[in-house]
Every structure is written in structure tokens, then in C-alpha cells.
Design a protein around this nucleic acid. Sequence first.
DNA 1: ACTTATGTGGACACACTGTCCGCTTGAATA
DNA 2: TATTCAAGCGGACAGTGTGTCCACATAAGT
Lengths: 183, 183
Amino acid sequence: MERADAARNRARILEAAAALFAERPPQDVTMDDIAKRAGVGRGTLYRRYPDRASIAAALLDEHERDLQERLLRGDPPLGPGAPPGERLAAFYAAMVRLLEDHAHLVLGSEVGRSRLETGAYGFWRAHVRALLVAAGTPGRDALVEVLLAPLAPEVYLYQRTTLGLSPERIAGALARLTRVLDG
Amino acid sequence: MERADAARNRARILEAAAALFAERPPQDVTMDDIAKRAGVGRGTLYRRYPDRASIAAALLDEHERDLQERLLRGDPPLGPGAPPGERLAAFYAAMVRLLEDHAHLVLGSEVGRSRLETGAYGFWRAHVRALLVAAGTPGRDALVEVLLAPLAPEVYLYQRTTLGLSPERIAGALARLTRVLDG
DNA sequence: ACTTATGTGGACACACTGTCCGCTTGAATA
DNA sequence: TATTCAAGCGGACAGTGTGTCCACATAAGT
């Protein structure tokens, strides 16, 4: 079981990291910065988190879990019960919401490694693949990645920041992708 | 005009970089490695190329130019003359070809910066946007990024390497995206 | 209070970056 | 061919971030 000082430091680290990720681009946040801000030594930081990505992932975790839960057991059209096309559109809308709130963390969680290799991505992939199966769409395995690619955080941030597009317009464009399911 | 030794070193640098990018992931290739392999000093390297990305971009340049030329003035369906949907499918097929041959360079050219901010990406965006205009598709600006996102090099390499998908299957999945153009 | 193993934190060694500046050399001129 | 000099060269250097290691501190059980 975890010692009291360990728990306290864990909380401090996450709090410090959240603040830093919010105020500048993730690749500019160093492990040293986080340790300093949290008031702990480097060793303490590395004991729990081997790199920035794992800290960002920890921060992102609960939001992703929440969405995952709703995909599995929530009300339609996000949860089971609605036709695959509608479920996919609802998934896109929910992901836009998640990106709008936490795109910087998603970006931070893929510093060093690829987003495609994280556990969360595996979940999204499984979900979308199941929808493709339900819709009877051919070429599933390649299509899954194609449908998920536009949710890359750098694409989202580019659309929002550089292009100045609204979340609604982005969600609308994604909704058009549901056409590849049928026919 | 360029001195003979300068020209010789430029060629050596590009040759060395091409070899190194081919044999390991781009983020593992250091400027020092390239300088060593090319038999030049660090200063010489930095004189021409400020970072790895610009070297990868230089290597990629001629291949991208070739495709750009064919998009503008080549035969249909890649060049002008074919319906937008077919042109988009041809573009996807050509990009799969390019990625198959040079995905590691594309990946290398976005070390540090985003692929979305490179000159080449601007060209692809303009091309796809023109196709959307020709097809009368609404929500163009957001849709352009959505349609280009699956061409991210890390997505392509993930599909090829980890998932073991063939270029044909990937191209097939991309071809399905052309459905978002009409209706 | 005593013990112990878990946790802490900063020093250390290493790697890569980007710059700076004295030396070298290609090529133009006479 | 000898002379000149600016373009080009390359290695040393300072700065920054990473990840590890280990002597010390401290929470929790006896």
C-alpha cells in the first residue's frame, strides 16, 4: 500500500503538470519544470512517471474512461441501440468535445511515442471496428485507421487555432464521414 | 555562385542523410551522425540546414514536386479532366505510392514541427479543396483536413508495419472516402 | 521507542543542440 | 604562375534536458 507522503506527492505532481500543460505546448514542459513546480526532486518524479507522456496520459485517463463507459453502456446514440452510422456520428461529436477540452493533454500524451500505440487509441479502434462490423462495411481494418486519423490532436488544434474553425463545423465535417459506412 | 567544395559537401550531406533516414527512425538520427557520415564538420552542416527536418524536406522535395506537377498538368484522372471523385481517388493512390517509398522521409520532415505547416501540405490542401469546390461539397474547409488526415505518415506506417496491411488495402479504404464528395 | 523498507531529492554522467571563430581553400586577377 | 581574399570549413564550447543512482529521511508496523 502507498505511503502518505507518496500519495501527497503524486497529487502535487499531477496538479503541477496540469497547470504547466495548460499554459504552454507540451514539448516545452520539461520533467524538471514539473518537479520544480510540484516541489519534489527529479528522482521522485521519475519513480512514478518515466516520461511526460505518462503524466499527460494519467491526467487524461479519467476523461477518457468516462467516454469509454458511455460508449459501452450509455444511452443511444452514443451507447448501444442506435444504427452504426448514428453511433459513429455521436462518437465523433463526443471526441470533438474531449479534444476541445483536453487536446493539449492528448498532444502531450504522445510526446515521444505515437498516439496509435496508447491504450486509449486501442479502445477507440475496437469501438469503430465494431461499428463497421455491425454495418457490414468491407475493408474494415484499413478503414478504421482512416476514420480515426482526423481525430489526431494536432489536426484538431490546427483546425481550431490556425484555420479558426468552430467545433461545430469540425464535427459537421466528421459527420459526413459516416457515409462511408453504408452502400 | 556556389564553390566546388560547397557543392561536393552538399551532395555528401544529402547522401549520408538519405542512408541514415533509411536505416533508423528519424528522431534517432542526430545532426552529428549526419555530419560524421558525410565527413564534414557540424558547422558545415548547420550552414545549409538548420535542422533535420529541412534535410528530410530537401530529400523529399523532388518526389513531391513530381507529384505536384502531375496533379496540375498530368493526364486524368490524376490531372485535370476527370470528375472530382475520381481525381481524389487517383490522388490518394499516388500519395500511397509516395508514402510507400518515402514515408520515413515524410516522418523525418516533421520532426520538431508539424506536417501541417510544411509547404507541401499546403499544396495538397489547395488541391483537395479545389476538388471539393468542383464537386460542390459543403463544409469545405473542415472537410479538407479530415480527408488529408489519413495520409499522416505515422498512420501509414502503423497500418503497414504493425497491422501488416498491404498498400492496396490502404488505398482501397481511402478510395471509399471519395463518397463524402457527392450527395 | 525501535526497526525496516518505502520513498525522497539532488548530484552525476551523458547526449544533443546550435553558435562562434580561427583556419583553409577555391577561384578570380594580373 | 603567383597573389589575393571572401566563401567555406570544422571542431571546440556553452547551454539544456534526460535518466540513473544512492545516501538519507520518514511513514508505518512491532
